[in-house]
Design a protein around this nucleic acid. Structure first.
Length: 252
DNA sequence: GCATTAATTGGTC
DNA sequence: GACCAATTAATGC
């Protein structure tokens, strides 16, 4: 059964978002905490969890601020990115329920090199660094899962680097659309995650005008359509085949 | 309904 | 293919 936490418990219309969920009751089976919940050594750490309620567009990790914890998405969707030279943006990844955020920083006492921003109203579970460090020292299963997770993350970012360097702009835009399609799903082709042209561009490594142009081309070719600002994939196979050559080398 | 923001399109370098 | 400008479409209040 759910329990209302001591904070964030003011009555609101957003029932689901106003109360915390104990790890025991959480449905995110892929969460690294949840996976190791049955272990007895794990129990003392669980009450160190804090709940962060984010509104749409709210930033909960500010680039350059000291690393103060590790974050897990309980509910909602989030973008993680970096601001480069001349304020140029790069979105590094999108994440949803169960996923970890801020993991790159937890081993060091330095500052976050990324920002994290909620794409929609979200609930974020936060653990202090000291808690996580202690957890990893005392719960081997958890440490192992983290190691596997880091290896996978490294693989993903290596793949991303190659794509940014090797794909044409058209391919990068298509690849990004396919990624959203695959990761967040769709209903009859309509992407379940709506992003602005700018966000797609920042993820793909180009600008919003190029994204608009590519989308217009794809509409001409009847591969894609739009409903207002939402993207609808009409010909998934055609989209996939355009980046086939790359996927032969890069698998994500 | 009006004001603001996002998308589109054309053009230059 | 990036950046800038003008126009149009969509959304927020």
């Amino acid at each position: 059964m759910n329990q209302i936490l001591k904070f964030h418990s003011e009555p609101t219309s957003n029932e689901g978002l106003s109360m915390n969920v104990l790890c025991q009751d959480c449905l995110n089976a892929n969460c690294l905490i949840k996976k190791n919940l049955d272990k007895t050594e794990m129990q003392p750490f669980l009450n160190k969890k804090n709940l962060i309620r984010c509104k749409r567009n709210q930033t909960f990790i500010v680039e350059g601020t000291p690393v103060y914890g590790l974050f897990f998405i309980q509910k909602g969707r989030v973008k993680v990115g970096k601001t480069g030279a001349y304020l140029k943006e790069q979105i590094l990844r999108f994440a949803q329920a169960g996923e970890v955020i801020g993991h790159r920083g937890f081993a060091t006492k330095e500052s976050f090199q990324i920002y994290a921003n909620a794409l929609e109203e979200s609930l974020i579970c936060h653990f202090p660094i000291e808690t996580i460090t202690e957890m990893l020292r005392t719960v081997p299963g958890m440490a192992f899962d983290f190691m596997l997770f880091f290896a996978e993350e490294l693989h993903n970012s290596e793949t991303k680097v190659s794509k940014l360097a090797q794909m044409s702009v058209r391919e990068k835009v298509i690849d990004s659309i396919l990624y959203i399609h695959r990761k967040f799903g769709h209903t009859d082709g309509k992407l379940n995650l709506q992003l602005s042209r700018k966000e797609i561009a920042h993820f793909a490594g180009t600008n919003d005008e190029q994204v608009t142009r590519i989308i217009s081309q794809l509409k001409e070719e009847n591969i894609l359509s739009t409903e207002k600002r939402k993207l609808v994939v009409l010909d998934l196979n055609e989209l996939k085949s355009e980046i086939r050559e790359h996927l032969f080398y890069l698998d994500t």
